[in-house]
Design a protein around this nucleic acid. Sequence first.
DNA 1: AAGCATATTCAACAAGCGTTGAATTAGCAA
DNA 2: TTGCTAATTCAACGCTTGTTGAATATGCTT
Lengths: 218, 218
Amino acid sequence: MNKKSSSPKSERILDVAEELFAMHGYDGVTLRQIATGAGVDVALASYHFGKKMDLFNAVFARRAGELNESRLSALRQCQERAGKKGPTVEQIIEAFLRPLEIAQETGDEGWTNYLALIAYVNNSPYWGEKMMSKLFDKLVLEFIAALRTALPDARDEDLYWCYHNLSGALTLTLAQTGRIDKLSGGKCRSSDFQAAYDHMIPFTAAGFRKVCGGKGKG
Amino acid sequence: MNKKSSSPKSERILDVAEELFAMHGYDGVTLRQIATGAGVDVALASYHFGKKMDLFNAVFARRAGELNESRLSALRQCQERAGKKGPTVEQIIEAFLRPLEIAQETGDEGWTNYLALIAYVNNSPYWGEKMMSKLFDKLVLEFIAALRTALPDARDEDLYWCYHNLSGALTLTLAQTGRIDKLSGGKCRSSDFQAAYDHMIPFTAAGFRKVCGGKGKG
DNA sequence: AAGCATATTCAACAAGCGTTGAATTAGCAA
DNA sequence: TTGCTAATTCAACGCTTGTTGAATATGCTT
């Protein structure tokens, strides 16, 4: 077990597990469903990844590095463009969100599933704290630092609560629950990520400005 | 099965199921865990509620009516107070959120668990659409109608997306993932509901104003 | 082609699952 | 007390689960 190999079947196990875990959660998926979906024997998942929980962790960690890099790169890029005065709240939030939208719209369904899985973990009272922090806290604190610079009058506590609200709005978008579809009678589609992010950016930016001061920048 | 009785043990089954389902989700909980937690035999749950899914539905529906009533009553009350000109965005959002905060802070742990369960369902791609709509859409549309009156220039589509962001921020708060605790190094606690709602109201209200027009009311 | 490590399947296990029918207890009416 | 009904437990079922050890296939090196 715990081989670092990446045979084609091994990748397909990860892909199918990603999709099913995102949809039904950890306990809602059996190794046999995953194996069947990947077209392999049940024992192969154990051979490559060990216990079921190890497979879950492997799925969760697989794309984390790439995601963090693309978000951090987006932040650095907008910071360089802004020069000495630093980027605006909108620009920082855009750097935080757009890489996700792009990942969801590349046509690579795997990324959409992976982000839905993040939503599942982030919203889970049981898994949330333990699993998210390890992989994403460093990056998030980087963004919060940028926001602190853009909102110099902000109290630290307020900054964190505002991030919490941003994170919640984002999480629900990643989960694609389809609730907005039914509620709006078809006017909004949860699969229309561009519309979701286009609305989320000004919405959350205005929230940050209101709660964290910045009267001069309205 | 499907008896309408409410013996003391029957209620305890619902209470324990509520807590465990909220924590681990539908598939993460076994009837035997619930029975053990409630101090009864495993067959008793089936006797009172039928299949496992029926028990889940019973838990989910038990407090829905009371919750809807208290929220609707809060809305009507703030509408009466506001008189002819109608309530502000902040007042409407406050009516939407405060009943939840109160429920979480009555000391009755059951309500906290129930709201965490709502968060679980609302964020689930699989359960979200089917289960939430039936019980809560009517009330939500009532609030959106009130917001439409307070923001007369808003496009309907924008109104729904803004509600989506509000719903996301709220959902993450209800789930109490503890992520904000670790992230802020203890400056924010996810169990401090008052702080959460005190920040959420101005945050989301500013978002609605920004996205849905209302320049004259800023 | 022979050898060897890796990859994959096969077969089976013990444990736990939801569910059910029969047996037992508790609560209440006559 | 005697019934009768609802509430609860007991015991067991067929099935699925995660996991593992042995057997087979595959691919690469020599």
